[in-house]
Nucleic acid binder design. Structure first.
Lengths: 336, 336
DNA sequence: ATGAAAGCGCTAACAC
DNA sequence: GTGTTAGCGCTTTCAT
């Protein structure tokens, strides 16, 4: 480990192999013109010497970092993890790496992060959602790399976006509930103002209820986003106390919905007979729990894949076309 | 976005401010000797110009990347996410960033990843588990930065480790089951050979059963790791068919355990009355589901925090002391 | 507290 | 297919 000798450079490999450093450089680049035998000899010598290619120097010289910067609200969320997975796997096909940062659902933190990430000279930057601090937005507007906002369709996109309307997605669920005969419908979500996607879902709920001429005032604030299962359970308890005549509940995520479900189970309240419940995000829990959860699939992984494809197109000089995802309502046992 | 003008450098900021580039460099470094007014003027001019500090150049010259490389089996796992969160937050106190890679529970992929990550010249590298390909191990042995293996206590550590014995942790759960009066105990885990932590848990199960003079052959292979909730449910169905007289089940993770629980619920089989169930990892689901899940807390976040602290100590020239985590058995309703 | 010179390790651009 | 030269944007080092 604590070998203190200076690590070998391309010049060392060149010396050992009897070629110029430039030829060593070519040996390490996939599609460069160099004879097969020479490349093999060089790579063998490099391995023997314990040479490790230095991306830092390469990046500085070529002005290409191979990084795509990505900010997500939380690392501990299966939806965002899927998006990052899709991004990561797709970008890997072109040897690009993700530089990840967590905003903790906080635009101040996002601003700090954007600044930090841009210093690494990423070739594109992906942010979650369309809400930023003023300075954060300015940083993104000024930087001359592709900027992609995801998980949302911003009113005024900075550059590109790959997302969907959170409000419309929730409207689909409200419509489903109304079609199924429910009228007194409540919404369990986070405190207003922090999680923009959550806020939009609440707004979508209210708008859809109004269209149906229904009362949209049954709102339970479950705490600061992200809402945990536990907070979903607590919110359900509160709801039963405040609005006992509720028939159906739209939750800001499957995690909150599952929490609500467990609270019903504990109280011996049958779902969907007494309360129908719907979630958001198509988490694994929703298709395994009893009863299975009605939810909305936002195609988290596809968001990542399509964002990566968009980035690669732009870097290839093609025109980048923004993507509108169409979330899909999945009706399961918790609402029928 | 596609502003094509060349981005400003320190030299540009220097010119505008009427100082040398070196002074601009000092202005961007926190604890350097420079007059307050000058620094402020420089930073203001930089912001006006839209200057973004170039870490790449800085890293090349100073031979410090500010990166810590981290490989985890999967991004979509709350335990590893917690570890990364602990690492990330602790390293952020010293302005270091994580460079993350996913091995997909595959040592070949880990080898590829290690090579890729080392090219970025991280100042330390953290890997999950103590099993690597021969070349992967050699790469880690040869590199002259701190190497930390986590989530395990390797038989022959490469350098440092922050982990625990997976086998001993499962032994504690078996002991608990035996104390509670269960004798016919089964194990639900992944197919052998891929997930080393999972394999060690199975080994720990077998060893503990033998100590108690009990039959350790009730083993259900639930599929390739990581075992999903769905696979846990399927494994439970298989178990009921093959070993109907089983009294208690140790599962390789809480996710598998929760799946088993839902299968019991669907079949109308009461837990813990008919089957006691235990999981691993102290996932959120385990404290919210009904009945709550007996599990083992491996202190995922602490693993990350202590790994980061160890790295910072070593980089500070202090002696790095390996950490043995003591997992904690949490007895809940699923086994009493 | 500030500046000048040199160079980190690689590759773009050009020559042959 | 290979080599030479120069320089990417910083910071180390030394001088003042």
């Amino acid at each position: 480990m604590s070998n203190t000798r200076k690590p070998p450079t391309m010049a060392d490999v060149a010396r050992v192999t009897g070629v110029s450093p430039m030829t060593v450089s070519r040996a390490f680049k996939a599609d460069s013109l160099i004879s097969k035998e020479r490349r093999e000899a060089i790579l063998r010598a490099a391995e023997d010497l314990g040479y490790v290619f230095d991306s830092t120097a390469s990046n500085l010289r070529s002005q290409k970092s191979g990084f795509v910067a990505v900010t997500i609200p939380s690392i501990n969320n299966a939806n965002f993890a899927d998006t990052v997975g899709g991004l990561s796997d797709t970008l890997a096909t072109r040897d690009m790496q993700i530089l990840l940062g967590y905003t903790n659902y906080n635009t101040q933190e996002e601003e700090r992060l954007i600044e930090q990430l841009l210093r690494r000279k990423p070739q594109a930057i992906v942010v979650t959602g369309g809400k930023h601090t003023e300075r954060g937005r300015r940083l993104l507007e000024t930087v001359n790399i592709p900027v992609i906002e995801t998980w949302d369709i911003p009113a005024e996109p900075i550059d590109h976006y790959v997302g969907f309307s959170n409000a419309n997605a929730v409207r689909d669920m409200v419509d489903h509930f109304v079609r199924a005969g429910y009228r007194r419908i409540a919404f369990i979500g986070g405190d207003v103002g922090r999680d923009t996607r959550g806020s939009e879902r609440r707004i979508g709920f209210a708008a859809a209820m109004q269209v149906h001429g229904l009362d949209a005032s049954r709102l339970i604030a479950a705490g600061l986003p992200p809402i945990s299962m536990r907070e979903g359970a607590n919110a359900m308890a509160k709801l039963i106390e405040i609005y006992p005549d509720t028939e159906a509940i739209v939750c800001v995520s499957d995690l909150a919905a599952y929490g609500a479900l467990t609270e019903c189970r504990r109280l011996g309240v049958p779902v969907p007979e007494r309360f129908a419940i719907g979630g958001f995000g198509n988490y694994e829990i929703g298709e395994v729990c009893v009863p299975t959860l009605t939810t909305i699939n936002a195609f988290a992984r596809e968001i990542g894949e399509k964002t990566a494809a968009l980035i690669l197109d732009i870097l290839d000089g093609k025109q980048g076309i923004d993507v509108r995802i169409s979330p899909e309502l999945i009706v399961r046992d918790s609402s029928r």
